[in-house]
């Protein structure tokens, strides 16, 4: 049980996927211009991460023990097709949810946080339950970082900033300061 809590806190705060591992930067910098959309993208990402964790565990346990060199190819094919499948399923079952998630679902396939999660979970030898907790922590951490950056960007739009700094350079510097703040969490579990 302790182990699961540790995995969750670690992937949520200390080793935050975006701010410490630099995974999923494209949506982090690209889509974070409004709070609303970044929150929705975060939810969709959590959803896909959970399913990826399941698929990765299944592949690792039943298929890849026979052919470890196929890992990368099979992961990427499975992730891409699952996302496609889920997209069709949601469209059929709940059009409202589909409209809410909108174009974000297909975009998530190219998010390196998804593939990164599958690879990290494999390298650390996580079991099914550990993998799911890891995915949950990583997904919530991703959403947290997105929402924080989006909030700061919405605020900064109201203030008078020189034209030179505006745009991606400023977002990177904001992200750097956020990342510094998240480093403070490293002391949280130093005893263990």
């Amino acid at each position: 049980m302790d182990n699961l809590v540790w995995i969750f806190i670690s992937s949520l705060l200390i080793n935050n996927f975006v701010l410490a591992y630099f995974l999923g930067l494209c949506p982090f910098l690209g889509v974070s211009n409004s709070l609303e959309t970044s929150f929705r993208l975060g939810l969709a990402t959590i959803f896909v991460l959970l399913i990826t964790a399941l698929c990765a565990w299944f592949l690792n346990t039943y298929v890849l023990i026979y052919a470890p060199y196929l890992r990368l190819i099979s992961f990427i094919v499975v992730i891409a097709s699952t996302v496609q499948f889920i997209e069709m399923l949601i469209k059929k079952l709940s059009p409202t949810l589909f409209r809410a998630m909108g174009i974000f679902l297909p975009l998530i396939t190219t998010n390196c946080a998804i593939l990164g999660l599958a690879i990290f979970a494999t390298n650390r030898g996580y079991g099914l339950l550990e993998g799911i907790v890891f995915a949950l922590g990583a997904g919530i951490g991703f959403t947290l970082a997105m929402v924080l950056l989006a909030g700061l960007r919405e605020e900064s739009e109201l203030s008078d900033i020189p034209r030179l700094i505006q745009g991606i350079a400023m977002n990177l510097i904001i992200a750097g300061i956020l990342s510094m703040a998240f480093m403070g969490f490293a002391g949280l579990f130093s005893a263990t």
């Binding site: 410490a20 630099f22 991606i168 350079a169 750097g176 480093m183």
Partner: peptide
């Protein structure tokens, strides 16, 4: 700080600033 994660964001931010 430069070899830790925040240093990456800050350095790239400053380089892009220079390009701007």
């Amino acid at each position: 700080i430069m070899v830790l994660p925040p240093g990456g964001f800050l350095t790239l931010g400053l380089i892009l600033l220079f390009f701007n």
